[in-house]
């Protein structure tokens, strides 16, 4: 082993050890647990094969609530944040007085911790003391029990996530817009393209690679959302707003069935890996197309 190799190993070893101890071992332990009968109150640890997986996949809660919730949430939050972020980026890409002030204001949510935002929103939508219901009453409308029904709770969670992530989209898309070459836009001005046709046929296709990268990163991230859902609804009412990560957590740490929780987490991991690979292929195709 020469000095260069030894130096390289010396640099890699600490990080590799941390990774193995705190990532690889827990994942393997969790995966192992998912194949055993392993509840916290009676940990027999006997090998049960795919029984836990089958239980999770056959669970009506998982199939009819968690799965649609997770994908619905992912699609809705990414779509809404993308559209709003793009609109804000397009606005900020123009010069106008006070642009820097607006830009700073728009980016504020990025600086708020998700849990704090979730607590804030939970209070805003509180049945009795919330500012939203106060505003509704002020307008002469009936107050709504936001966090006691599935779809209104879901909408509040979605709103929170969109509020948190729209600035991220805006920031990256703005950087993308500012890095586009000016000449095609000038050519479009000479070619008599209207603002809409310039956006549709020049801006959007040229921005596509940046947009696709944003979508993939954010979609994967949205898939494993935990904090804001847990803080706003705890997965309720009656487990109606549970996502993958909440479901795994509830199985493991509320129902104290570590094996099922682990099985749910592994299923989630497999789903997101497959989904990410599919998205990655789409990304490659889109980027190829927009060259």
């Amino acid at each position: 082993m020469n000095e260069k190799t030894r130096f390289m190993l010396a640099l890699i070893t600490p990080a590799a050890l941390v990774l193995i101890l705190f990532q690889v071992v827990p994942i393997l332990t969790g995966a192992d647990a998912s194949f055993r009968n392993w509840t916290l109150h009676d940990p027999k640890r006997t090998w049960v094969g795919f029984a836990n997986y089958l239980h999770v996949l056959r669970d009506a809660e998982f199939r009819d609530i968690v799965l649609p919730n997770t994908f619905g949430f992912m699609i809705a939050t990414v779509a809404c944040s993308l559209v709003l972020g793009l609109a804000i980026a397009l606005m900020l890409n123009n010069r106008f007085p006070g642009r820097w002030l607006v830009q700073s204001f728009v980016l504020l949510p990025l600086m708020v911790a998700p849990v704090i935002a979730a607590i804030m929103i939970r209070w805003m939508f509180n049945d009795q003391f919330g500012v939203v219901n106060a505003a509704l009453e002020g307008l002469g409308l009936a107050p709504i029990s936001w966090l006691t029904q599935r779809w209104t709770t879901f909408a509040v969670i979605l709103l929170t996530d969109v509020w948190l992530w729209t600035p991220w989209f805006a920031l990256i898309l703005l950087a993308g817009l500012q890095s586009l070459p000016p000449e095609p836009f000038e050519a479009a001005r000479i070619d008599a393209a209207s603002a809409w046709r310039t956006f549709r046929y020049i801006t959007l296709p040229m921005l596509r690679p940046v947009m696709v990268v944003c979508i993939v990163i954010r979609a994967i991230d949205a898939f494993r959302t935990f904090d804001i859902v847990w803080t706003i609804s705890g997965g309720g009412p009656a487990r109606a707003t549970e996502l993958f990560s909440i479901y795994a957590y509830v199985e493991a740490f509320q129902f104290l069935n570590l094996a099922r929780g682990s099985a749910a987490a592994v299923i989630g991991a497999i789903v997101i890996v497959v989904f990410a690979l599919l998205l990655y292929r789409v990304l490659n195709r889109f980027v190829e197309v927009s060259k």
Partner: peptide, 21 residues
């Protein structure tokens, strides 16, 4: 007048073709 109303056409240094078309 806007560029589109001047009845001109322009070739740019880097051609400025619409690369996705």
């Amino acid at each position: 007048l806007q560029p589109k109303d001047r009845d001109i056409a322009m070739v740019f240094q880097n051609y400025a073709l619409y690369r996705h078309m």
